[in-house]
Design a binder for these strands. Structure first.
Lengths: 222, 222
DNA sequence: TCTTACAGGTTTGTATACATTCGTGAAACA
DNA sequence: TGTTTCACGAATGTATACAAACCTGTAAGA
């Protein structure tokens, strides 16, 4: 993305926030972060600016950075937005595949292979009952579908919104079972066969199910 | 937002990109920007990281920053997302006003006053036929409604999405007339009276009209 | 002619030093 | 006792210096 260390540092702080390791309101002093990640304050500051733009961190002039408030009350609205967003990525991914049924560009082919791999790995993980490891695979699936849409805007918006939604699960993680995983196969099939409208409908249903599971099982206790 | 100069620099670069003064693909060398804005490279770099997270700028390691591709093909999808987003802000703004009909908190009262002022100024501007100046007032109106929702997430997401949509208008600006301005009055009335559902419906209609105007008049020629 | 190697300059990435601001707590005073 | 002032420490904001990587064009060689 940018500086060599900046991306790494931002990713680690982001993971610490989303995982719940850093509580909302916790101060993020540059000196402490610089020592923890063994870089100077410059990459730290740049990483904090990125996280600020992502809404995970609040920065006030001369007062420094702190972990932003977790958007607990925004769950329903965030899911509503995410439904439209992912519906768009699925439809456009389907359209791109439909436009190139003859011989597909290298980028599309690679993404399709990657998606197959993710699904296969998820199937195995699911069979082993290792639900914890399913979460990152789920994220990767949706991210790759977005990349398949060919729209940089949709990719980065999905990053932001799904990041915030994952943050909501920080307290009680993954009570949501793997029942939704099978839907991924249907979505990818529709996309690959260029059935854009069907892919969109399946994705809407899928994300709506994710939303319902959240309100049923994973509502934060706070 | 953060550093003293960082916010100012980021705002100016952002304005230059959205206004079309900087073409997509244009390189943004730190040295040039530092000289133009008369600060060192440090605030420049931080501003570029913010704009990168906003999707306006692309950064590659050791290759620097350049203006990202304008999301022309994403207009329909961006508007679809924006409809859900602004529907949420309007509804929740209405809910907050409904919850405090007796005596309103200082923050809500101030925002309502500010919204009145924006509407009045827009009415005058409209009467004078000064359509150019209507655009920023329009942005402010929607931004204040979002702040009235009380959700920081929705505010920052609106910033990002509306920023990209404004970017779409860079080529041929504001052919869209002021016919939609009157709808703002209806929306604010519904919000103030705590009619959350009505506010949401009005906002959906309003943004959908904005979308239709875009495809009717302001489609970029490229 | 085309390819390859390399030197030079340019640009980005990081570290350090200095300037500025803010928060805090002790001391002076009413 | 309560309030105000002010000085000091700590953190942020910025500038500068240096290191590392990249790009370009030039020349040697096949």
């Amino acid at each position: 993305m940018s500086g060599v260390h900046v991306a790494r540092v931002a990713a680690r702080i982001r993971a610490d926030i989303i995982s719940g390791g850093l509580e909302p309101g916790a101060r993020l002093t540059e000196k402490l972060l610089a020592e923890r990640y063994e870089v100077s304050r410059v990459p730290i500051r740049e990483a904090l600016r990125i996280l600020s733009a992502e809404g995970l961190v609040t920065i006030r002039p001369y007062a420094g950075a702190s972990v932003a408030d977790r958007p607990d009350d925004d769950a329903a609205d965030l899911f509503a937005i995410r439904i439209e967003l992912e519906a768009a990525t699925a439809r456009r991914a389907g359209e791109r595949c439909a436009a190139q049924t003859g011989e597909r560009s290298a980028e599309i082919s690679e993404l399709l292979v990657e998606l197959e791999r993710i699904l296969a790995e998820g199937d195995q993980t699911l069979k082993a009952g290792d639900l914890i490891k399913l979460a990152p695979l789920n994220s990767q699936f949706h991210q790759r579908i977005a990349e398949l849409s060919g729209s940089q805007s949709l990719v980065s918006l999905l990053d932001q919104i799904s990041g915030r939604i994952e943050w909501l699960y920080a307290v009680n993680v993954t009570k949501r079972g793997g029942e939704a995983w099978a839907e991924h196969h249907l979505i990818l099939d529709a996309v690959r066969q260029g059935q854009a409208q069907r892919a969109e409908e399946l994705m809407r249903h899928h994300v709506a199910g994710s939303r319902d599971s959240y309100f049923k099982y994973a509502r934060p206790s706070s």
